[in-house]
């Protein structure tokens, strides 16, 4: 049967991000994260569906 790992479970990215959010936003972290998630979901979904290209193609700055 499968060998049991003695390693501790890997830290999940979501937990790490929440810890950072807590440090920055304290008790307001969950509220800010909910708003950010809504915005990021809209961004990701639109990018998937519409495949927008960068304009201009070459950055104007740097």
């Amino acid at each position: 049967t499968t060998k049991r790992s003695v390693q501790p479970p890997a830290e999940r990215p979501g937990e790490r991000r929440m810890a950072e959010m807590k440090k920055l936003y304290g008790v307001g972290a969950a509220k800010i994260q909910a708003m950010e998630t809504a915005m990021q979901l809209a961004f990701d979904r639109n990018c998937d569906e519409k495949q927008p290209k960068y304009w201009p193609v070459i950055p104007l700055k740097l």
């Binding site: 304290g26 307001g28 800010i32």
Partner: peptide, 13 residues
């Protein structure tokens, strides 16, 4: 932290 929450919430809104 409270200041950052107020500023960030307004910006996201």
């Amino acid at each position: 932290q409270q200041g950052r929450v107020e500023l960030r919430e307004r910006y996201l809104r």
